[in-house]
């Protein structure tokens, strides 16, 4: 065990993956010598050489197109997109290529070895283009897996699982927590399962569900609710696609209430998908409407960020509203 922040945990997972498999390759803009603008790939070029850890030219569609080819060839590409806000030039390569490579060829070819890492999310005064949470665009694409860790321990275990998974995975890293989130992380190799949500805190009155950096927010809201005598069951979804319906259904069947919170705008966000499924599966157990506490339906603002975000106070209000319904 060692104290690590989220960046260290990711760096450590990459080190393990590259040590274990000499076909694993890390690349992206500024990823090589410099170790990435957030330093997640620090030291990897020194350790594994320039052929296995390198800077790419500044072209996201190139980064992912190259990664698709490399994965199809049998290597293990771990591509970094510098900010999730800049993943869109690669949208075609991800949505039309990575996601459909296996299906369209009848499994003659696949890019299952591909992992795309990218920092996402707000709370860093980044404005429109350094704050977005684009997971829902990708959740709408069968063939992809979408994973979001909430802390260093989760990040290491989920990233190793993503790299070894036989499907293309987009791994969204909560950049607000890169240095802010610190915790005990085993030095040895371990994996956490993809497609499995985690019950972080059991409770009986209401289910709170989120993923990534938003977990901190719902935990804070749950503390406030606890002071009012409300017992919250807190769940981290961890994998957005394919998501763990069973764990959420079991929880809501027990509590009868659900608040889902995401950073991204409300309309057509992944919270909406969850709400639709749970109202079908748990219809007769629900005591109140499922609440979605999300970003507003606008681009991510800068000076009015505090007002815009789905903060703990908005989640707390939703909890009370649900309980008093």
């Amino acid at each position: 065990m060692a104290q690590m922040n989220l960046l260290h945990a990711i760096n450590n997972a990459l080190d393990i993956a590259m040590t274990e498999n000499e076909r694993a390759v890390c690349f992206g803009e500024d990823v090589g010598h410099f170790g990435g603008v957030f330093r997640a790939t620090s030291g990897l070029q020194e350790k594994f050489g320039k052929l296995r850890c390198f800077n790419t030219p500044l072209v996201e569609q190139g980064v992912i197109g190259f990664a698709n080819g490399l994965a199809a060839q049998g290597s293990v590409p771990i591509a970094e997109i510098q900010f999730a806000d800049y993943i869109f030039p690669a949208f075609d390569q991800i949505v039309n290529e990575s996601a459909k490579f296996r299906y369209r060829s009848g499994n003659e070819f696949d890019v299952g070895n591909l992992t795309i890492r990218t920092p996402y999310g707000g709370g860093i005064a980044g404005g429109l283009y350094h704050s977005q949470s684009p997971e829902a665009y990708f959740a709408h694409t069968p063939g992809l897996k979408v994973v979001v860790p909430r802390n260093p321990y989760q990040a290491k275990g989920l990233l190793l699982a993503s790299i070894r998974d036989k499907n293309p995975v987009i791994f969204f890293e909560p950049k607000r927590l890169y240095r802010a989130s610190v915790g005990e992380v085993p030095l040895e190799d371990y994996q956490l399962p993809l497609g499995k949500a985690e019950i972080v805190t059991p409770g009986s009155d209401i289910t709170l569900l989120a993923w990534g950096a938003q977990m901190e927010i719902i935990e804070k809201a749950a503390e406030m609710a606890a002071a009012d005598g409300i017992s919250c069951e807190i769940i981290d979804l961890r994998t957005i696609l394919p998501w763990d319906i069973e764990t959420v259904v079991n929880s809501v069947t027990k509590t009868g209430r659900l608040v889902v919170s995401q950073e991204a705008p409300l309309t057509a966000g992944f919270a909406s998908e969850i709400a639709a499924t749970i109202q079908k599966e748990c219809f007769l157990h629900l005591e109140s409407p499922i609440a979605r506490i999300c970003g507003m339906d606008t681009p991510y603002p800068l000076s009015l960020e505090k007002e815009y975000v789905a903060d703990h106070l908005k989640v707390y209000e939703a909890i009370k509203h649900s309980i008093n319904y």
């Binding site: 803009e29 500024d30 090589g32 010598h33 410099f34 603008v37 390198f54 800077n55 030219p57 500044l58």
Partner: peptide, 10 residues
């Protein structure tokens, strides 16, 4: 381009 020198760009 940030840390990437031109000779790694093209």
């Amino acid at each position: 381009a940030i840390s990437t020198p031109a000779d790694e760009q093209y």
